[in-house]
Measured scan of single mutants.
Amino acid sequence: IINNLKLIREKKKISQSELAALLEVSRQTINGIEKNKYNPSLQLALKIAYYLNTPLEDIFQW
């Protein structure tokens, strides 16, 4: 999986903590996703895309 979450999140000036709060997950979860240590569920990936107002395929590429 190619993961552009960190790049997109930083472009939008959103911290890991802010995104985690919006998604109701821990900051460690966001960190793990960004470091490719954790693959989000489809539901979480869709929520990330929604809150970042970015197409899912721009954030994650399988």
Rank of each mutant, 00 (worst) to 15 (best):
I1H: 11
I1C: 15
I1F: 15
I1G: 09
I1L: 14
I1T: 11
I2L: 14
I2V: 13
I2N: 11
N3W: 03
N4V: 04
N4C: 09
N4S: 06
N4L: 05
N4R: 12
N4F: 08
L5H: 01
L5Y: 00
L5N: 01
L5I: 07
K6D: 02
K6W: 05
K6H: 07
L7P: 07
L7A: 14
L7C: 13
I8W: 07
I8P: 01
I8D: 00
R9V: 02
E10M: 13
E10A: 08
E10F: 07
E10L: 13
E10I: 12
K11S: 15
K11Q: 13
K12G: 04
K12S: 09
K13W: 06
K13I: 05
K13P: 03
K13T: 07
K13V: 06
I14C: 05
I14Q: 04
I14F: 09
S15C: 04
S15P: 05
S15F: 05
S15H: 05
S15R: 07
Q16R: 08
Q16E: 06
Q16C: 03
Q16P: 04
Q16M: 09
Q16T: 07
Q16N: 03
S17Q: 12
S17T: 11
S17Y: 10
S17I: 12
S17G: 13
S17K: 13
E18V: 10
E18W: 07
E18C: 09
E18A: 12
L19K: 00
L19H: 03
L19Y: 02
L19Q: 00
L19A: 03
L19E: 00
A20K: 02
A20I: 03
A21V: 08
A21F: 10
A21T: 12
A21Q: 10
L22S: 09
L22Y: 15
L22T: 07
L23E: 00
L23I: 11
L23W: 02
E24R: 14
E24W: 08
E24H: 15
E24Y: 09
E24D: 13
V25P: 01
V25Y: 02
V25F: 03
V25R: 03
V25K: 03
V25N: 01
S26G: 07
S26D: 13
R27L: 15
R27N: 07
R27F: 09
Q28T: 11
Q28V: 12
Q28M: 11
T29K: 08
T29E: 09
T29R: 09
I30P: 01
I30M: 06
I30H: 00
N31V: 14
N31T: 08
N31I: 15
G32L: 15
G32M: 15
I33V: 06
I33F: 05
I33N: 00
I33D: 01
I33L: 09
E34Q: 02
E34P: 01
K35Q: 15
K35C: 12
K35N: 15
K35P: 01
K35F: 06
N36D: 08
K37Y: 15
K37M: 15
K37S: 11
Y38N: 08
Y38L: 13
Y38K: 10
N39W: 15
P40K: 02
P40W: 04
P40I: 10
P40Y: 04
P40D: 05
S41C: 06
S41Y: 04
S41H: 06
L42H: 08
L42A: 06
L42Q: 07
L42T: 06
L42R: 10
L42M: 12
L42W: 11
Q43I: 13
Q43H: 13
Q43N: 11
Q43P: 12
L44H: 03
A45T: 04
A45G: 06
A45V: 05
A45F: 04
L46E: 08
L46C: 14
L46Q: 12
L46I: 12
L46N: 08
K47F: 04
K47M: 09
K47D: 05
K47C: 08
K47P: 01
K47A: 10
K47G: 06
I48G: 00
I48N: 00
I48K: 00
A49R: 02
A49P: 00
A49K: 02
A49V: 04
A49Q: 03
Y50P: 00
Y50M: 11
Y50K: 10
Y50C: 11
Y51K: 06
Y51M: 11
Y51A: 14
Y51V: 15
L52V: 03
L52N: 00
L52S: 02
N53A: 12
N53P: 01
N53M: 08
N53E: 14
N53T: 07
N53R: 10
N53L: 05
T54C: 08
T54P: 00
P55F: 05
P55M: 06
P55K: 09
L56F: 09
L56T: 04
L56S: 03
L56W: 05
L56A: 05
L56I: 13
E57M: 09
E57N: 11
E57A: 11
D58F: 09
D58N: 09
D58K: 09
D58M: 10
D58R: 07
D58W: 09
I59F: 04
I59P: 01
F60H: 01
F60I: 03
F60E: 00
F60L: 03
F60C: 04
Q61T: 10
Q61E: 12
Q61N: 11
Q61D: 11
W62H: 08
W62D: 07
W62P: 08
W62R: 08
W62A: 08
